[in-house]
Design a protein around this nucleic acid. Structure first.
Length: 212
DNA sequence: ACCCAGGTGGCCC
DNA sequence: GGGCCACATGGG
């Protein structure tokens, strides 16, 4: 274990507290299948997009009773979906990404509750095989929608590593391994640390999918 | 008129 | 592996 990284974690935790207080919807330990699906959908919306706009897209889906994998996978075309989630940007790609994810889970595993129980390595491979889901989105879905211990590397994490000179290498897999071997293998700790890094840089907590 | 926001995939070397 | 670029929207 890399004591330095674990110490950073402990200090941030002392300063800001548990992530469940900061992002309750994403970090609550008891999630319904519906809540898991909302988190996964949000993970796609937030790709290169502000949380505010991603949240607006979620609300638009909710208004139309489309906030579920099953409902989305039953759509006959992407027209309505495209209109509703336009605010999340990339309107020529995100609707298809979302539809493909929902259809895949719905057909192969029925729902996220089933999918989240399969082998973690296999689950990650399956997510990565979908077009438009790269390592960060896959790990976000695993960590927050499936509550599996898969550390997320995002821009904030990379800045954190640079700032504190924690690694020579900057590629995704190296950083992911660095964090995972430096911390106890724990979903709660991975969620906490990831969010604490963000909060520490932004100076405040952004909210997402509040009251959904 | 810029610049940025939880990225991804294609292409190039 | 790393650098560059397109992709789209909305706020500051």
């Amino acid at each position: 274990m890399n004591d330095k990284i674990y110490t950073f974690y402990q200090n941030l935790y002392k300063k800001y507290g548990p992530a469940e207080k900061i992002w309750p919807d994403w970090c609550k330990s008891h999630k319904s299948n519906r809540e898991r699906e909302i988190v996964a959908i949000g993970a796609i919306f937030t790709q290169r997009t502000s949380w505010r706009n991603a949240d607006l897209a979620l609300r638009n889906l909710k208004k139309e009773k489309l906030l579920s994998f099953q409902k989305i996978s039953q759509l006959k075309n992407l027209k309505k979906l495209t209109k509703l989630i336009r605010v999340a940007g990339f309107y020529q790609s995100k609707p298809k990404r979302l539809y493909d994810l929902c259809s895949f889970i719905n057909q192969e595993y029925k729902n996220l509750e089933k999918f989240r129980k399969i082998d973690q390595g296999l689950a990650r491979e399956k997510l990565l095989s979908l077009n438009g889901i790269g390592p960060e989105t896959a790990d976000t879905i695993l960590l927050y929608a499936c509550d599996r211990p898969s550390f997320v590397i995002d821009e904030y994490t990379k800045r954190f590593v640079k700032k504190h000179r924690l690694s020579q290498r900057q590629d995704y897999d190296s950083l992911k391994q660095l964090f995972e071997k430096s911390l106890p293998k724990s979903t709660r700790i991975y969620q906490n640390f990831h969010i604490l890094i963000i909060v520490d840089q932004k100076g405040k907590a952004a909210s997402m999918m509040a009251k959904i």
